[in-house]
């Protein structure tokens, strides 16, 4: 049964889908919406999912596409962007406190990375996909996956070492 397959194979992926979209969209609310959309799309396709070889990678590809669409459409909504900047400023105190938390410091550095590097780091270091899977999901070749991964890791580490040297903690 397709719906049974959906609840055993797809629903457990919702956390991964959520984490990936949150990494790409940098917003909890937007990530929740994206997750819901992706799960709904998978639900509509549930009859054909049996034929998909790597369902996890398939779901991740779908999530990536969804998030890129959201990001694209967001660039048109300048008004909304201004608004979100404003709320960020107002909560500067809480973000200051947050920045002291060493672990969320890492989150901040990852956030500062280019989109593609963020995606690669998320898929490899958090979700532990193989390089081959990442190539398929992001549509990159093996060299560019490795390069993006290396750049992202080096960048995060240099930032981390910098803060440690300055003693800002």
């Amino acid at each position: 049964m397709a719906s049974e397959f959906y609840s055993t194979e797809i629903l457990p992926l919702q956390d991964k889908i959520f984490r990936f979209s949150r990494r790409l969209l940098s917003s909890e609310t937007a990530a929740k919406d994206a997750t819901q959309d992706v799960l709904l799309k998978l639900w509509k396709l549930r009859d054909q999912l049996n034929e998909v070889k790597n369902i996890e990678a398939y779901a991740m590809t779908m999530t990536k596409n969804k998030c890129y669409d959201v990001i694209k459409s967001k660039h048109h909504k300048t008004l909304e962007l201004v608004h979100s900047n404003y709320t960020n400023e107002s909560s500067s105190l809480s973000s200051q406190i947050e920045a002291r938390d060493e672990v969320s410091l890492v989150a901040k550095f990852i956030e500062a990375l280019p989109e593609q590097q963020r995606a690669v780091i998320q898929l490899r270091d958090i979700e532990q996909f193989s390089n081959k899977e990442i190539e398929d999901i992001l549509g990159m070749n093996s060299t560019s996956v490795r390069v993006a991964l290396s750049r992202a890791r080096k960048k995060i580490m240099s930032e981390l070492k910098k803060t440690a040297d300055y003693g800002i903690r």
Binding site: S3, L11, Q14, D15, I17, F18, R19, R22, E28, K32, T35, Q36, L39, L40, W43, E102, V103, L105, V106, A107, D125, I126, E127, Q128, I156, M157, L160, K161, A164
Partner: peptide, 27 residues
């Protein structure tokens, strides 16, 4: 210790759960 921060972050992050509820159309 800087590497520890990074890997601890990855470990914590991989446990994050989807806080929303999945709404599917009625069968």
């Amino acid at each position: 210790k800087e590497y520890a921060l990074l890997f601890q972050f990855f470990e914590a992050e991989s446990g994050t759960q989807h806080p929303g509820e999945v709404v599917l159309p009625k069968q």
